[in-house]
Design a protein around this nucleic acid. Sequence first.
DNA 1: CCTTAATCCTGGAAGC
DNA 2: TGCTTCCAGGATTAAG
Length: 277
Amino acid sequence: MFAVPELPEVENVRRTLALRIVNRPICAVEIRRASVIHGPHTPRALLADSAVARVERHGKQLALIGPSGQPCLGIHLGMTGSLRHTSSIAQQDQHVHVAWRLDDGSWMIFRDPRRFGGIWAFPSFQALQAGRWAKLGPDALSITPADLHRRLQRTRQAIKAALLDQHLLAGLGNIYADELLFACRLWPLTPACRLSLAQTQQLVRAMRRLLARAIRAGGSTLRDYVNAQGQPGGFQLQHRVYNRAGQPCTICKGPLTRLTLAGRTTVCCPRCQPNSR
DNA sequence: CCTTAATCCTGGAAGC
DNA sequence: TGCTTCCAGGATTAAG
């Protein structure tokens, strides 16, 4: 249905983009829609006449880091954002907001039809980390069970709402939160503070396994997600609950239930994810 | 402290 | 066929 880039998709963008653009001279920057850029949007701030030395990720966000002493760009893909390396741009494409031209005439493009994403220009990676990433919780791939347990203890919110809160834990969105809760057989409305340390240890183990499998499969492509090289992912074929309301549970064969939680569609199995404890 | 809803936005799908 | 309506959702903000 949508792009919905969450941690596995953003990690695939990071890897495929790095292969194509790291240390490649950027000759020029075209800003077609300045409103997607936050902070200074001078050519220098956008790495014109410079290069991307490293591409890093925290949660769902990317950093295009210039050479030492040079600027840094924070990229958030939002819902429909994409960052791609292509040989050419369709001139009539209204959704390409920023385009960087490389030395061989190819382009890195930021495209985002729904414009929930954006670009944040900072003078350095340290400034991005201090100004933007510091507000995020630990990355879902590196958080420890003890840390997550401590953070979950602090809220009475439903576990699904807590998992979606990027200030608490960075990286999960609606797809992987539903898949994770199903994998752990946890009812989405369970208060977060009711998870025991043992349950949280299981949760973290399942989360790492789920995200690793999704990354390996290239992420989930529901409608139009592609990595920086234009390739779709294949993990949607392994979804057990997301977008499967009414269909049979892969374990008990009963119908999957759909409910709304924290304003989001939630799909789960009332039999395999019992509302208890 | 908690939840819900509105807001931003487009395009695909469904309904008439 | 063509129009309208609904719906998807990440993050923020305001209201209850």
